[in-house]
Amino acid sequence: MCYQLVERFSACRCLYFQHAVDPCEAYRQRGHSVQEKVVLVGYTCSRHSMRWSGNKARDSTLSDSGYSSIKG
């Protein structure tokens, strides 16, 4: 079975990064499907991190979960 890793923000579920498909031997065969594996990263995207207070917006970005997909 083929897999595709998709990273999404944990609070709003917006897309952070979509990785290439990790193909199996049957990848190009008709009717074969790709299973999506979701990893939650950070907290919220910049679009959903804004809170409206009256007529002006203030940035209320919360700190992330501390998870990092990059090994260093």
Rank of each mutant, 00 (worst) to 15 (best):
residue 34 V to L: 03
residue 48 H to Y: 07
residue 10 S to G: 04
residue 72 G to W: 11
residue 59 D to P: 12
residue 30 R to S: 06
residue 51 R to S: 11
residue 28 R to E: 15
residue 39 V to W: 01
residue 22 D to F: 14
residue 60 S to G: 06
residue 38 V to P: 03
residue 41 V to G: 09
residue 27 Y to T: 00
residue 14 C to L: 02
residue 20 A to Y: 09
residue 66 G to N: 00
residue 8 R to N: 04
residue 11 A to V: 13
residue 50 M to W: 12
residue 69 S to P: 07
residue 29 Q to N: 12
residue 6 V to Q: 10
residue 50 M to F: 13
residue 64 D to M: 05
residue 14 C to A: 14
residue 68 S to K: 09
residue 22 D to L: 12
residue 61 T to G: 06
residue 68 S to L: 13
residue 36 E to N: 09
residue 6 V to F: 03
residue 29 Q to R: 14
residue 22 D to M: 08
residue 60 S to W: 06
residue 2 C to F: 09
residue 14 C to T: 02
residue 67 Y to K: 12
residue 38 V to W: 11
residue 17 F to I: 00
residue 12 C to L: 02
residue 37 K to H: 11
residue 63 S to A: 08
residue 21 V to K: 08
residue 27 Y to V: 00
residue 4 Q to F: 07
residue 57 A to M: 14
residue 55 N to V: 04
residue 3 Y to K: 07
residue 31 G to A: 04
residue 20 A to G: 09
residue 21 V to L: 03
residue 26 A to R: 10
residue 25 E to I: 06
residue 33 S to Q: 15
residue 25 E to F: 15
residue 38 V to M: 02
residue 5 L to I: 01
residue 67 Y to E: 12
residue 33 S to A: 14
residue 50 M to V: 08
residue 51 R to A: 07
residue 36 E to K: 13
residue 4 Q to I: 04
residue 53 S to H: 13
residue 57 A to D: 10
residue 52 W to C: 06
residue 21 V to Y: 00
residue 39 V to N: 10
residue 33 S to K: 08
residue 38 V to A: 02
residue 12 C to G: 00
residue 1 M to A: 05
residue 32 H to Y: 14
residue 47 R to F: 15
residue 67 Y to S: 05
residue 43 Y to K: 07
residue 68 S to Y: 03
residue 49 S to A: 05
residue 63 S to L: 14
residue 23 P to Q: 06
residue 1 M to E: 08
residue 40 L to T: 13
residue 25 E to P: 12
residue 14 C to I: 00
residue 20 A to D: 08
residue 39 V to L: 15
residue 5 L to E: 05
residue 15 L to G: 11
residue 26 A to I: 04
residue 19 H to A: 10
residue 1 M to L: 08
residue 31 G to L: 05
residue 52 W to G: 04
residue 1 M to Y: 13
residue 25 E to W: 08
residue 33 S to V: 09
residue 23 P to T: 11
residue 35 Q to V: 01
residue 70 I to D: 04
residue 55 N to C: 07
residue 18 Q to Y: 06
residue 49 S to V: 02
residue 1 M to S: 04
residue 62 L to G: 02
residue 23 P to C: 04
residue 41 V to F: 03
residue 9 F to D: 05
residue 49 S to H: 05
residue 2 C to A: 09
residue 37 K to V: 15
residue 40 L to G: 01
residue 50 M to N: 09
residue 33 S to P: 09
residue 43 Y to G: 02
residue 19 H to P: 02
residue 2 C to K: 04
residue 33 S to R: 10
residue 11 A to L: 03
residue 34 V to K: 01
residue 12 C to N: 04
residue 24 C to V: 01
residue 37 K to Y: 08
residue 54 G to F: 06
residue 27 Y to R: 00
residue 36 E to D: 11
residue 58 R to F: 10
residue 37 K to R: 11
residue 70 I to E: 02
residue 66 G to A: 02
residue 34 V to F: 06
residue 53 S to D: 15
